[in-house]
Every structure is written in structure tokens, then in C-alpha cells.
């Protein structure tokens, strides 16, 4: 899928992956998440717990919301809080947010007791986003994070992403819209000849 692709990121910075449709942005994120195995090469995360694979330090925020319509909004979130293990690396100071606070933060606190089936697409998306807040993990992989979100929610999302960066976290995101993130690097994927990881070295 990819050839000669390499990049490294430091705590507190974000990488925005851009490129045409079908170029493999989602595949890149899924590879980083450990959901697609690598043919060659390696993914390393420094400072993580030893003996723990890198994907267990990662929150994957993909196209699918992983929201169960039959469960209430709060039940959905509480399940992920207990089920997904928290992970830390040195230099990352993120902490766990209470599920109810997370829902309030994203403006869907009033739906906590309702079945998730009653939520609109944007509300489901925000519920899925709450999942990243209730379990602290240093790396966020976000595939088109702004899809189905209105402008206000998009601003909130940016705030959360910046807060995550400020706490020393990492974000890799594939997006078409311009995200005003602090300390952003751009990885532009192109077809044919080797992809160009433009600012890769500028980081150090």
C-alpha cells in the first residue's frame, strides 16, 4: 500500500494527513492502529509501558461510532470507560474525565438516560468522541473527525484536540477541512511516486 513512508512525531504535536480520496489516508490510520498488519517496517511508541503493544496506547476515532442503539447513552460510555484500558507514556498528563462530565462537555448531557437509538448522527458522533475523554490514552487517531458535526461542535472538537496536545498527547488525523491545531505538521499523500513526508525532519 505505502512505500518509503516514514515519519516521527513528538509529544504535544499533531500530524494532519491530507491527500485525494482513495489515496489511503484511512488505511494509514488503520495501520497505525494495529488493525492492519505491516508488510515491512515498524511502528514504535517511546516511553510507553513495556510489553504493551503500541495500539493499546491509541484511541481510534474512525467512521463508525461503535454506539449500541439499545443501550442508553450513559451505558454506552460507561462500558467503554471500564472496558478500554487506560495507558500512559512519559510526558503525557491526560486524565480520566467522568462520563457524565464528558457528556455535558459535548452538549449531550441531557440525553444521558435515553437510548442511543434516539440520537441524531451528530449526537452519536459526539458520544463516540466522549469515549476518548473517559479513558486517557496518549495517541489519538482521528479519521475525518469533523464529519457530521455542526460548526459549534467542530469548534468544541478543536478545543478538545488542542487540550489533548497541551497535555502532551499526540494526534494523527486525516481530514479535508482546515483544522486550526497548534503545532501541526502536514503529511501529504500522493499517488504514483513515493509519498512525500514534507516536514518530517522539522520536528526535532
Amino acid at each position: 500500500m505505502f512505500e518509503d513512508l516514514s515519519f516521527s512525531l513528538e509529544g504535544g504535536s499533531a500530524l494532519v494527513v491530507t491527500g485525494a480520496n482513495g489515496i489511503g489516508k484511512s488505511s494509514l490510520l488503520r495501520t497505525l492502529a494495529g488493525l492492519v498488519s505491516l508488510a515491512h517496517g515498524s511502528i514504535r511508541l517511546e516511553g510507553g509501558a513495556p510489553d504493551t503493544p503500541s495500539e493499546e496506547h491509541i484511541h481510534y476515532f474512525g467512521h463508525q461510532d461503535a454506539v449500541k442503539p439499545a443501550l442508553s447513552v450513559l451505558e454506552n460510555l460507561q462500558f467503554w470507560q471500564s472496558f478500554a484500558a487506560a495507558a500512559h507514556v512519559s510526558g503525557f498528563s491526560g486524565s480520566s474525565v467522568d462520563p457524565m462530565d464528558a457528556l455535558n462537555l459535548l452538549g449531550i448531557g441531557h440525553t444521558a438516560r435515553l437510548p442511543a437509538a434516539f440520537l441524531s448522527a451528530g449526537q452519536k458522533r459526539r458520544l463516540s468522541l466522549c469515549r476518548l475523554l473517559v479513558t486517557p490514552r496518549p495517541v489519538w487517531l482521528m479519521d475525518e473527525p469533523t464529519s457530521a458535526l455542526d460548526r459549534v461542535s467542530e469548534t468544541q472538537l478543536l478545543g478538545l484536540m488542542n487540550a489533548h496536545l497541551a497535555a502532551g498527547g499526540l494526534i494523527v488525523t486525516a481530514t479535508h477541512s482546515d483544522l486550526a491545531l497548534e503545532k501541526t505538521l502536514i503529511l501529504h499523500l500522493r499517488a504514483g511516486d513515493a509519498a512525500a513526508p514534507s516536514p518530517e525532519e522539522a520536528l526535532q
Binding site: 492502529a33 494495529g34 493499546e56 481510534y60 474512525g62 461503535a66 467503554w80 484500558a85
Partner: peptide
Amino acid sequence: DDGTLDLMLMAGR
């Protein structure tokens, strides 16, 4: 179907 399985694989359990 709803992406839960991917997250379960990454959950560290």
C-alpha cells in the same frame, strides 16, 4: 458492523 470489534481489538484486554 458498527466498529465495536476494532475497538475491542485495541482495548488492551
